[in-house]
Amino acid sequence: MDFLISASTDAGTRKATNQDSLFVSRLLTCRGKMVFAVLCDGMGGMEKGELASATLVKAFCTWAKERLQTLQEREIADADIRAQWEDIIFRQNEKIIAYGVQNGILLGTTVTAMLLTEKRYYILNVGDSRAYEITDALAQLTQDQTVVAREVALGNLTSEEAEKDSRRNVLLQCVGIKEDVCPEMYFGDTKPDAVYMLCSDGFRHEISPQEFVAYYEPACMTGEDVLRAQSEHLIALNKQRNEKDNISVITVKVCC
């Protein structure tokens, strides 16, 4: 089994800065190949969002370098990943809050991190960035921690209403703002030939699920250049449709 990887990001049409940070790497280990990916969306209205997102991405990179080697020497347990990633979130949350207090500013970030092995995927999520699995349909693997997602879960809004609701950007959780941050973890089996996608909210607001499936149809993703070209097309489409936010995406194709 092999993996193709790609990542693209754009500041978008309205914002002068790109506050998103991304990291994706393909690794060869004694248990076969793995992909480790992290996408952080620095908070739009807050100062130095790019600092918060870069700090968290680098913390996850450090984890990969220092801890993944030990972890992959035996079967990776869901509980181990959960404990270690939650620890990263809690520590970085404290650091970012302390930095904000010291400098009298507000800064924060969302995060979606994924470790993809030949057998399983392990995903952590805080905020409204998302992970998807694309086969012949689009499956959303993470749940947004937002006001509208909660309203949809409570039956007060439909998914269609939520997409147009003025509160769609209001987060219930993010790293760097409140002390009681609650990351959510998702685990599952890796599907052969699927495309896995991590994206910021700016990448998905203006694109329909059908378009995602059409653009990233797994059978057509034959090389990393194709994955990247499709991501660039979708970023351009987002900009055409007046997306105001930063736009970022990581894609991983599973090849058997």
């Binding site: 790109n18 393909r26 060869l28 280990t29 600092l51 700090t55 680098k58 370098k65 993944l68």
Partner: peptide, 24 residues
């Protein structure tokens, strides 16, 4: 990439960050 992951070989790595600063 030239990162040292021990016995793990990094085949490819893509990074996008937009600041040189990191909160220590």
């Amino acid at each position: 990439p030239d990162n040292d992951f021990g016995t793990i070989v990094v085949e490819k790595e893509i990074v996008f960050v937009h600041t040189d600063e990191v909160i220590e």
